[in-house]
Design a protein around this nucleic acid. Structure first.
Length: 421
DNA sequence: TCTGGGGTCCTAGGACCC
DNA sequence: TCTGGGGTCCTAGGACCC
């Protein structure tokens, strides 16, 4: 039996933890670079703000409807996420963190599931201040579905326990939801399903399995079985080792000079390789890309990229940085207005298991002690105090726009909340 | 003027093997 | 004129997730 616990409009709720005055106000959180809406409270939803809508289209609501806007503050969200997962783990034998705002919990063999659901919600609320909903069912897909129902219908009081429902109620619930609400059925798939008369979740539940398999493949067959209560997705005991790491950002304004691109890329390489070392991995592939603004039809469009393999797995920032900058040179074309660039590290292997190249003689210079020192300085003093000089080249045009960011209440001493007398 | 940033899995088809 | 059958590995592209 699986429980799925999901924080309600998580990023907004994180902001509200330290701003109780916003409890009933419409709040949204924007994507990086203050681009578009990625989290919204029910009050913001009621204003007609859709998910993913660009900020400039709703900015007027700050003036006219009391909308409160935040830039994303990942330091805050990931820290509160940690606390939330810890609170959940204190009540159940096993958890599997699925994303920053949701987690599966193993409730097999436990009695009084409705009471447990209530307890989970209350504990997260009391310990962390995040409201959440709980869905409990015999498969992960159904648990997600129950969670969805719990969020949608206030009358369910934040939790749905599938086995407690009579069969006809379960059926009615499946009939009431479009197939696109099911986990694993996205936009394309639901369009194709509608075309063959599969509209509701119940239609998918009842569809002919062989046809489904033939037309849509094994993934959707699994989804159907899960809807029928046959578990196809098991617990993931270990978080899988990453196969690739990507770091990229949009620029606050257009960038045309190689120096600005160099600076941005330098920044991204440093974070990507830092993540790589935290994974205890080494990569053997590196790709650099830079792109124009895809929304500007009036400007020349460009997506340039260049990747290459290394003779030897590597986790050395300086080496990878040098290679990335060489590749950028190939990618760069004058006369393009760039809006985004980034780096991808691929073919990642565990650091302690390495296949060396016995033909290529060139061994890549690596400096483990230097990298260790680098990482510990970053850990101790934060990100801003140590970086490669090339990051300081050029202008600030490549940096991120973050005009509405809240303080890092829980992770920076200078941002600790002060409550006046 | 202004539109995010990560990831994974599956499949079809081509190249190759015996 | 007529040309098998069974496999693996790799990659690109398409779909999905948050």
């Amino acid at each position: 039996m699986f429980a799925l616990i999901d924080g309600n409009h998580f990023y907004c709720s994180c902001e509200r933890v330290f701003r109780p005055d916003l409890k009933t106000r419409p709040v949204v959180v924007l994507s990086n670079n203050d681009g578009c809406v990625v989290s919204r409270t029910p009050e913001a939803k009621a204003l007609g703000i859709k998910m993913g809508v660009p900020y400039y289209q709703i900015a007027h609501l700050e003036q006219h409807a009391g909308l409160v806007v935040f830039s994303s503050n990942y330091a805050l969200y990931s820290h509160l996420s940690h606390h939330m997962m810890h609170s959940i783990a204190s009540l159940v034998p096993r958890t599997e963190v699925y994303s920053i705002d949701e987690c599966f919990a193993d409730v097999s063999g436990l009695n009084q599931l409705p009471e447990l659901a209530l307890q989970l919600r209350e504990r997260v609320w009391q310990w962390v201040g995040i409201p959440c909903c709980v869905g409990i069912a015999p498969t992960k897909t159904l648990a997600k579905f129950c969670n969805h129902l719990a969020k949608k219908h206030a009358s369910l009081r934040g939790s749905v326990v599938w086995p407690q429902w009579r069969t006809d109620i379960q059926q009615r619930a499946l009939r009431s939801e479009d197939v696109s609400e099911i986990w694993g059925v996205g936009r394309k798939l639901s369009t194709r399903l509608h075309a063959i008369n599969i509209h509701s979740a119940w239609d998918l539940h009842c569809a002919d399995t062989t046809t489904l398999r033939r037309l849509f493949g094994v993934t959707l067959e699994r989804t159907q079985r899960e809807l029928q209560g046959i578990a196809c997705l098991d617990w993931e005991n270990q978080p899988a080792a990453k196969q690739s790491i990507v770091c990229s950002r949009s620029f606050q304004s257009q960038v045309t000079s190689l120096d600005d691109l160099r600076a941005a890329l330098s920044h991204h390489v440093q974070s990507a390789v830092h993540k790589l070392r935290q994974e205890r991995g080494c990569c053997q592939y590196l790709r650099v890309f830079a792109a124009s603004n895809r929304f500007r039809d009036d400007l020349p469009q460009y997506y340039g990229h260049q990747g290459s393999f290394l003779a030897q797995p590597c986790d050395d920032t300086l080496q990878l940085h040098q290679l990335a900058q060489q590749q950028l040179q190939q990618v760069f074309q004058a006369g393009i207005a760039y809006k985004r660039c980034g780096v991808e590290l691929g073919h990642i292997h565990p650091k302690h298991i390495q296949q060396l190249d016995w033909i290529a003689n060139a061994s890549i210079k690596q400096r483990p002690e230097l990298m260790q020192a680098w990482d510990s300085i970053k850990r101790k003093y934060g990100d801003k105090h140590l970086y490669l000089a090339s990051e300081g080249l050029g202008t600030d045009a490549w940096k991120m726009r973050q005009q509405h960011r809240s303080p890092q209440y829980t992770t920076a001493f200078q941002d600790i909340l002060v409550i006046p007398n």
